[in-house]
Amino acid sequence: MLLELQDVKVAYGRIEALHGISLHVNEGEIVALIGANGAGKTTTMRAISGLRPLSGGKIIFNGEDISRLRADLRVVRGLCQAPEGRQIFPGMTVLENLDMGAYTRRDKAGIAADLARVYDLFPRLKERAKQAAGTLSGGEQQMLAIGRALMARPKVLLLDEPSMGLAPMLIRQIFEIITEISQQGTTILVVEQNAQQALSRAHRAYVLETGRIVKEGTGNDLLHDPAVREAYLGVA
C-alpha cells in the first residue's frame, strides 16, 4: 500500500466535513474517488496534501505517518497534486509553471527528462512555453496543472476534478492522458464528478457521500452498480 487514509476526519470549525474516511491506493493503480458536489472530495485531497489539518485519523504514505507533516515536505516525500480549478500561476509563463512543479528538486538531468516527458504528453504546452499561463484556454490550463504536478516526479499523483469545466471531447482526451501517465508507472488518485470517465479508467474506486465512503469496488463493478448508475451516471 502506497497511500492509506485511516479513519480520516476533517472539520471546518465545528462542522465536520469528513466523518472518518478510510481508503488506500496501491502502487501502480488509478484509484478514483467519486461523489457529488459537497461530498468532501476536495477536502479529502486537501487533507492528503496537508492544506487542511486532520481532526482525527491518520494518513500513511510509503510506510510513514504523514498526518502532521507540513504540506511542502509532503511534496518532497512524493505526493503532488493538481488542485481543483487548476490553480496555475497566471502571471508566470507556462515553462515557469512547470518549473514550479520541480521546485523541490535539484537533479537537473532528471528535471530536463521530466520536462521532455511532459512536453511529450502535452505538445501544446511546448508550443506555449513562453506564454503567460493566464492566457491559456481551460483545457490547456488543466494540461498545465497536470504537467506541473508531474514535474515533481510524484510517487502518487493527486488529481482533483481534472474534467471540471471542460468540453466532453477534452475530458476524454485528459483521461486518455491520465491512463497513459499511469501506464508509464505513476500511481494516481483522482477525484471526479464525472463518474463515467473516472470509473471506466480506474482500477478501483470509492464513492463518497456527505463525508463518508459509502461504496468501494473495482471501477468496472461500480460502473455497473445500479445505485451508482442512478446516482452518478444519470441512468435509471
Partner: peptide, 17 residues
Amino acid sequence: RGVRAVAQDPQTAALMG
C-alpha cells in the same frame, strides 16, 4: 520563483513544495 508563487497563491505554492 518561490516568492512569486507564494505572492500569487500561497496554497498552490505549498502544493508545489
